Computed example of a mutant assay.
Amino acid sequence: MPTVALLLVSNIFMTIAWYWHLKGGMAKPLPTVILLSWALALVEYCFAVPANRIGFASGWSGGQLKVAQEVITLLVFGAFAVLVLGEQLSWRHAGAFACLVGAAAFMFAGRS
């Protein structure tokens, strides 16, 4: 599953790019935070673009790629929120995740 592995790595970089500064980086000037986040996002694109190309070449539709990416994003952000931001997950997080997994199931249903 190179598509899923590449999407996982890309989402780790994107989550860090978007949220790293919330824990310990709030004192940094916003332009600095933006530039550092762009650098991380560039690395993220180096994984996301091949993931989508490989997935599409393997028969995944654009919708399937997007929904799979959203499920992975929620998993990665959940771990980041707990491990880095010190937040607690609740039943609402589980409900949101269940809805996204349901969306993925619909997108992949009947796929041969």
Score class of each variant (00 low, 15 high):
52 N>Y: 08
70 E>Q: 05
97 F>E: 01
45 Y>R: 10
50 P>A: 08
51 A>Y: 03
48 A>P: 00
41 A>I: 13
99 C>A: 15
92 R>D: 05
63 G>C: 02
51 A>V: 07
37 S>L: 08
81 A>R: 06
82 V>D: 02
77 F>H: 05
90 S>I: 03
35 L>D: 04
101 V>D: 04
35 L>T: 12
35 L>E: 06
59 G>P: 03
40 L>T: 04
45 Y>C: 03
101 V>A: 14
91 W>R: 08
76 V>H: 03
34 I>W: 13
48 A>D: 02
24 G>K: 10
91 W>P: 01
63 G>A: 06
55 G>L: 03
34 I>A: 13
59 G>E: 03
71 V>L: 09
70 E>D: 06
51 A>R: 01
89 L>C: 07
45 Y>M: 12
70 E>C: 00
98 A>G: 11
81 A>P: 01
25 G>F: 11
36 L>S: 00
73 T>R: 10
33 V>E: 01
87 E>C: 00
84 V>I: 15
32 T>W: 12
86 G>N: 04
80 F>G: 01
47 F>L: 05
46 C>T: 10
66 K>E: 05
49 V>P: 00
70 E>K: 02
58 S>Q: 12
41 A>E: 11
101 V>W: 10
66 K>D: 02
75 L>Y: 11
39 A>S: 12
50 P>W: 09
49 V>L: 12
81 A>H: 05
28 K>A: 15
25 G>Q: 09
67 V>H: 01
88 Q>P: 00
88 Q>V: 07
38 W>D: 08
27 A>H: 13
37 S>G: 14
52 N>Q: 10
44 E>D: 09
82 V>Q: 04
29 P>I: 11
98 A>E: 04
90 S>A: 08
99 C>I: 15
60 W>Q: 12
48 A>C: 06
55 G>T: 01
96 A>T: 11
72 I>M: 07
60 W>E: 12
93 H>W: 15
29 P>E: 11
51 A>S: 11
80 F>Q: 02
52 N>C: 06
40 L>A: 10
48 A>N: 08
45 Y>V: 08
84 V>P: 04
99 C>M: 15
71 V>E: 02
72 I>H: 01
53 R>H: 12
34 I>D: 05
68 A>M: 15
49 V>S: 01
35 L>Q: 10
96 A>L: 13
98 A>N: 05
45 Y>F: 14
78 G>D: 12
39 A>R: 02
95 G>I: 08
83 L>S: 08
26 M>E: 13
46 C>H: 03
29 P>W: 11
63 G>T: 10
51 A>H: 05
28 K>F: 14
71 V>M: 02
70 E>Y: 04
24 G>A: 09
26 M>V: 12
80 F>T: 02
95 G>W: 10
48 A>Q: 06
101 V>N: 03
25 G>N: 07
56 F>M: 12
60 W>S: 11
65 L>F: 03
68 A>L: 15
59 G>F: 07
43 V>M: 12
32 T>S: 09
77 F>E: 07
43 V>S: 07
56 F>K: 14
40 L>S: 02
53 R>T: 12
39 A>Q: 07
69 Q>D: 15
51 A>Q: 06
35 L>A: 14
55 G>C: 06
79 A>G: 09
97 F>G: 04
67 V>W: 01
35 L>P: 02
